[in-house]
Amino acid sequence: MIPGEFTYHRPSSVAEAVAILVSHGDEARPLSGGHSLIPMMKLRMAAPEHLVDLGGIADLKGISEDGGTITIRAMTTQHELIGSDLLAEKLPIIKETSLLIADPQIRYVGTLGGNVANGDPGNDMPALMQCLNASYVLTGPDGDREVAARDFYEAAYFTALAPEEILTAVKIPTPPAGHGYAYEKLKRKVGDYATAAAAVLLTMNGGSVASASVALTNVADTPLYAADASNILTGSTLDDATVASAVAAAEAITDPASDGRGPAEYRTKMAGIMMQRALARAADRARS
């Protein structure tokens, strides 16, 4: 398992990185944490001739909040997400999810940008970003543009990101204080992708749901924002019948592969169970 040859670039600015991508087109790939791309290169399923290491761009690090929006720069690692006081206070679901990704070593180097940009349906952050209604800042030769996470994913490994663009930041609207949240992930073992996983964000008003957002991981060739399920829940008191119909609506949009994690039917059902359990925990947190 040895990667093919490539020319290595280590730009120190986003502009420089974009320029390299522009000059090499499809033959170039940006490298962030590398734990998706390097194994593919070792299997020779990916063979970029130019590798653009984003690790030297200081500007791609950091977490900040401004005017109700939390901005996480793309090369922020999962380890840094887990350790962020700002996120712990304002967006604790990010820590909860990050801790379920891969293993400690990989979380030191795995980045939020890499996780959301490469379009692997097994990754956890894309569905979470859809749940949080995040948008991605894509920087190309013509400057920045923003694409909503809910619009970004086209198919497995196909996204709205153009070959000469780099995903430089993720912008997340800060949810109201006291919101409920949970990420439930069923996996065979630490280090595995989800058999199915669900992200839920809730706000409650008295006994009823003021807003609800549900998204699912690894049960289709893209992450799934469960719009119908979210709508069904909104305004309800989370009574059994409503929850059942929201779960059914979420299951209906899944289209999982049958693989070692189980047949499609199982994975669809697990998406429903994960959603139901995430919903219950989120509701508990929202009320408390």
């Binding site: 290595y8 590398g34 194994p39 070792k42 290491d53 690790g55 380890h79 400690p104 070593q105 990989i106």
Partner: peptide, 28 residues
């Protein structure tokens, strides 16, 4: 060789990393 087993773990700048899934150039 696929970053699952951790037998290649080393410490880099205070972090544990799997050296089978990292280019030497990244450690420069």
């Amino acid at each position: 060789e696929t970053s699952h087993c951790g037998a290649c773990t080393v410490e880099m700048n205070g972090m544990s990393v799997k050296s089978c899934t990292m280019f030497a150039a990244q450690a420069n």
